[in-house]
Amino acid sequence: MEGETKGNGTTKNRAYWARRGFDAESPGVCNTFRAPASKVA
């Protein structure tokens, strides 16, 4: 499927988490265990 990689989520989701960590200047904001399923699918 376009934009998908096995085990790493969609391109859109990876970009979301990269931007979130970059903007916060901390990887600690990227707690995918507490995120809604729509943000880690």
Results as ranks from 00 to 15, higher is better:
M1T: 11
M1K: 10
M1L: 12
M1Q: 09
E2M: 05
G3F: 03
G3R: 00
E4C: 13
E4N: 07
T5L: 10
T5F: 07
K6S: 14
K6P: 09
K6H: 14
K6C: 11
G7N: 14
G7S: 11
G7W: 08
G7T: 06
G9N: 01
G9A: 01
T10P: 00
T10W: 06
T10N: 04
T11C: 09
T11I: 12
K12F: 09
K12Y: 09
K12E: 14
K12M: 07
R14Y: 05
R14M: 01
R14N: 02
A15C: 12
A15N: 13
A15L: 14
A15Q: 15
Y16H: 08
Y16R: 01
Y16K: 00
Y16V: 02
W17V: 02
A18C: 08
A18K: 12
A18L: 08
R19T: 09
R19S: 11
R20F: 08
R20S: 00
R20E: 06
R20I: 01
G21Q: 11
G21M: 13
G21P: 04
G21N: 01
F22V: 08
F22T: 08
F22Q: 12
D23T: 10
D23V: 08
A24K: 01
A24F: 02
A24G: 05
A24D: 02
E25Q: 15
E25N: 15
E25W: 12
S26H: 03
S26C: 04
S26P: 01
P27V: 13
P27K: 11
P27H: 08
P27Q: 07
G28S: 14
G28K: 15
G28A: 15
G28M: 11
V29Y: 00
V29R: 07
V29H: 05
C30G: 01
C30L: 04
N31T: 05
T32V: 12
T32S: 03
F33S: 14
F33L: 15
F33P: 00
F33K: 13
F33T: 11
R34P: 05
R34G: 00
R34F: 00
A35D: 00
A35G: 00
A35T: 03
A35V: 00
P36L: 06
A37I: 12
A37W: 07
A37L: 02
A37C: 11
S38W: 07
S38L: 07
S38H: 11
K39R: 15
K39C: 05
K39Q: 13
V40A: 01
V40E: 01
V40L: 01
V40R: 09
A41T: 11
A41E: 14
A41M: 10
